[in-house]
């Protein structure tokens, strides 16, 4: 549009003045248009964020209010008159939430740790050594991504009762490690393949053992280890199925199971119900906010690759 052919200087001057005005106007119009689209994008995402967080905020807010206020004005923040911790007090009196949190933390941490360690060892072996069955073994381990381990529950419960592991946290850990390994091995194999070959070869030339080489390469795949750890954590913490079937006893119950079981018992004690829900939700939300970057990249890569 502004391509004035350089013929004579007079022509050029005449052409440039309106061109500058024209460009100015176009810039302003473009800016206005961009501002409008920016506002639209913020508007839509803002509304959706409200929809995503509103229900959670509502529950936490009302868990801190007196019974009357929960029903009279559910959509206001607790004030000095309506603020109460009754719900939390009755939850802690009637249910041993410290034990349940301890169980969830122990089961989740140990399962995630073993998944990462075993997964890294297997991924290292499968990518490092040129052995003919390596691709077959990798495919075998990857089957578990497609086929949910829940389908073996009938047999798992029989096996656990033969091993005397029903109502133990060990049973949960064993199942969760088996459940987490497929994704861990597949994901970490990608990271190990990208790790530098020179470092490993240099270490071997220096006479390092295979185990030492593994120790040297491991720090290079740290982002992968973090992604696997964070991505395998949520399904374990949030699982209801296996705690319900393999370890439902009061001594071994996880938070997720306890919330499910206690809500029914509290009946119409709404303060206790809301407090139980908040106790179940808030710790995980805080943890997620801290690790959200690793989590989302881990999840995205797990499927992208």
């Amino acid at each position: 549009m502004t391509s004035t052919t350089p013929s004579t200087s007079v022509d050029q001057q005449r052409a440039e003045a309106p061109a500058a005005v024209d460009r100015d106007q176009r810039n302003r119009r473009a800016q206005r248009r961009q501002l409008r689209s920016r506002l639209t994008v913020h508007g839509v995402l803002g509304v959706y964020t409200l929809l995503a967080l509103g229900p959670i905020v509502l529950i936490v807010m009302n868990s801190l209010k007196s019974r009357g206020a929960i029903f009279d004005s559910p959509f206001t923040v607790p004030t000095a008159e309506t603020l109460t911790f009754d719900g939390y007090l009755s939850v802690f009196q009637r249910a041993d939430f410290v034990t349940y949190f301890g169980n969830s933390i122990a089961v989740t941490l140990i399962s995630v740790f073993l998944t990462v360690v075993f997964g890294a060892m297997a991924a290292f072996a499968l990518t490092e050594y040129k052995i003919r069955i390596a691709p077959i073994l990798l495919a075998y381990l990857a089957i578990g991504i497609m086929i949910p381990i829940r389908l073996g529950t009938v047999s798992l419960l029989q096996m656990m009762s033969q091993l005397g592991l029903v109502n133990t946290r060990t049973a949960l850990v064993l199942v969760y490690v088996a459940m987490g390994l497929p994704l861990a091995v597949v994901l970490l194999s990608q990271y190990f393949r990208q790790a530098s070959v020179e470092i490993r070869e240099a270490a071997r030339v220096d006479g390092a053992s295979e185990y030492r080489v593994f120790g040297i390469v491991l720090p290079l795949v740290r982002p992968g280890l973090a992604a696997v750890a964070v991505a395998s954590m949520l399904p374990i913490w949030n699982d209801l199925w296996f705690p319900l079937i393999l370890a439902p006893s009061d001594r071994t119950a996880t938070v997720t199971l306890a919330v499910q079981q206690f809500i029914g018992q509290f009946g119409s004690d709404w303060n206790a119900v809301l407090a139980t829900l908040s106790l179940g939700a808030v710790p995980l939300i805080v943890l997620f906010m801290i690790f959200s970057r690793q989590f989302i990249s881990g999840l995205a890569e797990g499927v992208g690759k």
Binding site: A122, I149, L151
Partner: peptide, 29 residues
């Protein structure tokens, strides 16, 4: 021989847990 042994040692825990508590129960079921 050393590397072959290492291959087995690195793979054994994952294969064992996965086979025993994921694949075997599904097949047995």
């Amino acid at each position: 021989r050393g590397t072959r042994l290492a291959f087995v040692v690195f793979l054994a825990p994952a294969l064992l847990v996965y086979t025993m508590f994921a694949i075997y129960p599904i097949v047995d079921s």
